[in-house]
């Protein structure tokens, strides 16, 4: 990472905006017990208190603080999204790397599996997985990771394949370098930048999937989350719109910020490919 990378990356106002919001969310998530001491599941006041009326964002149908829910929900949402993405990147990356490096029959088999997983409607499959594993934080992570890895595998495979045919890799082969050394010390470091970009964008998709699952009541029980708040507030849309609107805006801004940062990362890592 050279200094010109940081200049390109941080000099981009969209990246800066995204980073500021993400920093707020992360700080909120880390400092949740300090800045929102009320238990998000505890009845803290009258139900349906309007925002700014004693509670910053009001209360829900049971009198729970929306602000507490929001801050504690950030923890759940971020943690699940990040862990699921890491798992998907690790698994998809390994599969893609092996597929692209060895080619031939290995590639054929692994890519068939990838295509197969892309044929299954991903969200329905995620619902099924959570239901089968019975709803818990772990099963949500597993479900999201299971439906997210195929695109990663494809991108890594393509990248490894193109690097594999580059002459410096062939030179390593002719010097007698072992396969795993070539794969891990020569190819993967050079394939890192698309992996980082895709990975960061995948966090955004994972947040959307997690919140949709929680919305349907298939999230991690006993963890407050943004999707769950929307799902719970849904029935009171007519009278207490803020129960739906506020967590939704939180999701939107967070996903938007991650996308902006991810794209900024892409532009900064591949300055020539920047779209005008």
């Amino acid at each position: 990472m050279t200094s010109s990378f940081w200049i390109r990356f941080l000099g981009n106002p969209r990246v800066l905006l995204g980073l500021i919001w993400l920093a707020l969310v992360v700080i909120g998530a880390l400092a949740a017990p300090l800045i929102a001491p009320l238990d998000p599941f505890a009845i803290s006041g009258k139900p349906f208190v309007r925002p700014m009326d004693g509670f910053l964002f009001g209360t829900d149908s049971l009198g729970r603080s929306v602000w507490s829910g929001l801050v504690h929900g950030a923890r759940t949402t971020l943690l699940i999204a990040i862990i699921a993405t890491l798992a998907a990147v690790a698994f998809g990356g390994l599969l893609g790397a092996l597929s692209g490096f060895y080619g031939g029959r290995t590639d054929n088999l692994l890519m068939r599996i990838t295509e197969f997983f892309q044929t299954i409607p991903s969200f329905i499959f995620a619902i099924l997985l959570v239901a089968v594993l019975s709803p818990s934080a772990t099963s949500v992570v597993v479900a999201i990771a299971t439906v997210s890895w195929p695109p990663i595998a494809r991108i890594v495979r393509a990248e490894v394949m193109s690097l594999r045919s580059r002459e410096f890799i062939q030179a390593a082969v002719t010097l007698g370098e072992r396969d795993f050394v070539i794969l891990f010390r020569q190819i993967l470091p050079n394939a890192l930048s698309p992996l980082i970009v895709t990975g960061s964008l995948l966090v955004a998709t994972a947040i959307l999937t997690e919140s949709a699952l929680s919305f349907l009541g298939l999230g991690a029980p006993n963890f407050m989350s943004w999707g769950f708040m929307i799902g719970a507030g849904r029935s009171f849309l007519r009278d207490a719109w803020w129960l739906v609107a506020i967590p939704g805006i939180a999701i939107l801004l967070t996903v938007l910020s991650i996308n902006l940062v991810g794209e900024g990362l892409n532009d900064a890592l591949n300055p020539r490919l920047r779209t005008p």
Binding site: L208, A212, W241, V244, L252, L256, N259
Partner: peptide
């Protein structure tokens, strides 16, 4: 960019709120 970051179920509810209710 904004539409790309919007959760489906939420925009559905918001549309109902505005255009139906």
């Amino acid at each position: 960019v904004i539409a790309y970051a919007t959760p489906l179920f939420w925009i559905g509810l918001m549309l109902i709120l505005v255009f139906s209710i």
